[in-house]
Computed example of a mutant assay.
Amino acid sequence: MGGSQSTRKLSVDNDNAIQVSQEALDRIQSQLSANKIEQPSPQQYAPPPPVYDTQKHAAEEAYWVHRIENLKRAHEKINSGMHIEYQKTLKEANELFELVKADKIATKLPPCQEEKAKVLECYSQNPNKSLVCSVLVNQFNDCVCKSRLAAITASP
């Protein structure tokens, strides 16, 4: 019983079948493909442009204009302060250079050059009599002491 195959056959006759010509099939295919092309894809959807609130935009614009003006004023204050400090420093540096320059001119020649020349001339004229020049040596010594004292009192 279950070991053999069935040999029955079934056939259906349909007298109401519709036959379509090849031209009709081609027209239907072209219309379907044209409809597919015309339909927009969901990815091409563009959102509407954003709506701007003009009052909010004007308030933001005023805020930034005010902020920029404040920053400009602060920048100008900083620049003026830096310019003043630069001028003061330049003036102080020039004064220091003038002091150093004047000090170099003052100390360019050692003090008591005349007295020194007199002592040397006396020693050359009296090679074996050094006590003869003692008065000139004392004058030279006094001059050196006075110039040392003047230098000490003049320095700050």
Rank of each mutant, 00 (worst) to 15 (best):
M1A: 12
M1W: 08
M1T: 09
S4K: 05
S4D: 15
R8D: 07
K9Y: 12
S11G: 05
D13Y: 15
D13I: 14
D15L: 15
N16W: 08
V20S: 04
S21A: 14
E23R: 11
A24S: 15
A24R: 10
D26Y: 04
Q29M: 12
S30W: 12
S30V: 11
S30F: 13
Q31T: 10
I37S: 06
S41L: 07
P42W: 03
Q44D: 12
A46Q: 14
P48H: 07
P48A: 13
V51Q: 15
Q55K: 07
Q55F: 06
Q55M: 05
K56R: 06
K56P: 02
A59T: 07
E60F: 04
E61N: 08
Y63H: 10
Y63P: 00
W64C: 06
W64Y: 13
I68N: 04
I68K: 05
E69P: 02
E69W: 07
K72M: 04
A74H: 10
A74G: 07
A74F: 02
H75V: 03
N79S: 13
G81Y: 03
I84A: 10
E85S: 12
Y86T: 09
Y86M: 08
T89P: 00
L90N: 10
K91H: 06
E92Q: 15
E95V: 01
E98S: 10
L99C: 03
V100C: 00
V100E: 04
A102Q: 11
D103Y: 10
K104T: 03
A106H: 03
T107H: 10
T107P: 01
C112T: 01
Q113H: 04
E115L: 00
K116N: 14
K116M: 11
K116I: 02
K118W: 04
K118E: 12
K118T: 10
E121W: 03
C122W: 05
S124A: 09
N126A: 03
N126T: 07
P127V: 07
K129Y: 07
L131T: 07
S134N: 09
V137P: 01
N138T: 15
N138S: 13
Q139F: 02
F140A: 00
D142S: 13
C143H: 00
C143E: 01
C145A: 12
S147W: 06
S147D: 08
A150L: 09
A151F: 07
A151P: 04
I152A: 01
A154W: 00
S155M: 09
S155L: 11
P156R: 06
